[in-house]
Simulated scan of single mutants.
Amino acid sequence: MVLIATEVFGVALAGGWAIAGLFELGSTVGYILMGLFSLFAAYVMTMVWRVCTRVEPITQRA
């Protein structure tokens, strides 16, 4: 989980920085994009956490 989270947040920060640099949007817009992408990364990590910690009921076979 920690490695996946690190990768997702790293991509979010690098993506915001790269898009702002590519389109010459300035540092303020770059920080805003990094923040928005980080919020999306937090949402993705919440969904991954829920899937990974889901406990399936154990059924007994007769």
Results as ranks from 00 to 15, higher is better:
Leu25Val: 09
Leu39Met: 10
Ile32Trp: 06
Gly26Ile: 13
Ala42Trp: 07
Leu25Asn: 03
Val29Gly: 01
Leu36Thr: 08
Gly35Arg: 04
Leu33Tyr: 15
Phe40Trp: 06
Val29Met: 11
Gly30Glu: 02
Gly35Glu: 05
Met47Asp: 15
Trp49Ala: 13
Gly35Asp: 09
Thr28Glu: 14
Gly35Phe: 12
Trp49Pro: 01
Thr53Arg: 03
Val29Asn: 02
Thr28Met: 08
Met45Ser: 06
Ala41Asp: 01
Val48Gln: 11
Val51Gly: 04
Glu56Pro: 02
Thr28Ile: 12
Val55Leu: 07
Gly26Glu: 14
Gly30Cys: 00
Thr46His: 11
Val55Asn: 05
Arg50Ser: 10
Ile32Met: 13
Val48Ile: 13
Cys52Phe: 03
Val44Trp: 03
Val44Gln: 12
Val29Leu: 07
Cys52Asp: 15
Arg54Trp: 15
Leu33Cys: 01
Tyr43Ser: 01
Cys52Pro: 02
Leu39Lys: 00
Gly30Asn: 04
Thr53Pro: 05
Glu56Ile: 13
Gly26Trp: 14
Val48Pro: 00
Ser27Trp: 12
Leu25Asp: 06
Phe40Cys: 09
Val51Lys: 09
Tyr43Trp: 06
Tyr31Gln: 08
Val55Ser: 04
Glu56Leu: 15
Ala42Val: 05
Thr46Glu: 07
Leu39Ser: 07
Ser27Met: 10
Ser38Asp: 04
Arg50Met: 12
Ser27His: 08
Leu36Ile: 11
Val29Ser: 06
Leu33Pro: 12
Phe37Ile: 01
Gly30Ala: 02
Leu33Arg: 09
Leu25Ile: 10
Tyr43Ile: 04
Met45Trp: 03
Arg54Phe: 15
Tyr31Trp: 11
Leu39Ile: 11
Val44Phe: 07
Ile32Gly: 12
Glu56Ser: 15
Leu36Trp: 12
Gly35Asn: 01
Val48Gly: 03
Arg50Trp: 06
Tyr43Asp: 00
Arg50Gly: 06
Val44Cys: 12
Tyr31Leu: 08
Arg50Lys: 13
Met47Tyr: 08
Trp49Thr: 13
Thr28Trp: 13
Phe37Ala: 05
Ala41Lys: 00
Arg50Ala: 08
Met45Glu: 15
Trp49Asn: 05
Ala41Tyr: 04
Ala41Cys: 04
Tyr43Arg: 03
Cys52Arg: 07
Val44Asn: 06
